[in-house]
Amino acid sequence: MSSILECKALQKRYGLKDALCGINLSLEPGRIIGLLGPNGSGKTTLIKLACGLLTPTGGEILIDGQKPSKETKAIVSYLPERMALPTWMTAKQAMDYYQDFYSDFRRDTAEDMLARLGLDERQTIRSMSKGMREKLQLILVMSRAAKLYLLDEPIGGVDPATRDYILKTIIGNYNEDAAVVISTHLIADVEQVLDEVVFLRQGNVVLHRSVDDIREAEGKSVDELFRQVFAY
């Protein structure tokens, strides 16, 4: 099976500091992958490189065999770690925006999820609570039938109930032929939904294995293995 995301000696440097140190990585479709590591390990940098928001210092990153471009952006659904929707927009205008630019946007799915949340489509994003804004952004991202979902810290900074909602939304709505990459350091919360994990430490891939393999071979949960690998 061909890789949906491939990194070849990928390097990114900010000034004198290496954020990614020539990593090699290959992710296949149909899997939910946890991109795990402590703060500053290079998770967000890797995702931004895949989205074309940063350019590599060395090596290359390929999405479905192509360098990040207009074409790859059409098949990648990206959830940034911050609120990217203009706050003056209403939920309806935000859906219009997605529908206009992404041919794979499933409007019915988005409307259905918003209705279940009890969110008024005419409400501006500015007037929503922080949790509601994050849910709206996630709904828009997961309502696309993309080939690759890149979710940067989707459960960071939200309450446990919202965390459950977010994970259910991800599991219930992603395109099953696609790969879902979830970047987080909250391992215990996401472990249940992951097929495989990538551990990043100081810009290096220190482990890339399936979750079942970790449980069988190590006799540990991903959270336990993470604590062992990243112990100070």
Binding site: K70, K73, V76, Y78, P80, M83, A84, F101
Partner: peptide, 13 residues
């Protein structure tokens, strides 16, 4: 700004 994360991941040149 933060909006750039949306604008610059649109499938446009």
């Amino acid at each position: 700004s933060d909006e750039g994360y949306l604008t610059r991941t649109l499938p446009v040149s």
